[in-house]
């Protein structure tokens, strides 16, 4: 299994991480080795075995739909890199 530099760039784009030229080569090599290691699972017979969703015998958890105290807007926004009033500020998302 070998990941090309184009594939590495594609994964990075999906993950929204920019990676530098010098990193692409290294990641391509390391990720290929890791994916090779995963291949051993293909030899395990899992015919009829259901996937684990959860290690506990828990199912859906419900509670009454009643409002409870939550953080104040000031507390939520205190860590914002950029804010405008009670909003988080970002650069334009849609291009004109």
């Amino acid at each position: 299994m070998h990941l090309s530099t184009e594939q590495v760039q594609h994964i990075a784009r999906l993950a929204r991480v920019e990676i530098g030229e010098e990193e692409v080569e290294r990641f391509s090599e390391q990720l290929s080795a890791i994916l090779d290691y995963f291949q051993r699972l293909q030899q395990v017979d899992t015919e009829g075995v259901s996937p684990t969703a959860h290690t506990l015998p828990l199912h859906n958890i419900f509670r009454d739909d009643e409002p409870e105290p939550c953080l104040e807007p000031e507390e939520v926004l205190a860590n914002a890199p950029q804010r405008e009033g009670d909003l988080f500020r970002v650069k334009a998302v849609l291009e004109e």
């Binding site: 991480v17 990676i19 530098g20 860590n79 890199p81 950029q82 970002v90 334009a92």
Partner: peptide
């Protein structure tokens, strides 16, 4: 993502560029 908390790269031309560089 550099929007709600933590380190944020803010010199990019678009929100996506800022986000991808924040994570880089």
């Amino acid at each position: 993502d550099g929007v709600k908390y933590g380190y944020a790269y803010q010199e990019g031309a678009s929100m996506w560029e800022n986000m991808e560089k924040t994570r880089r």
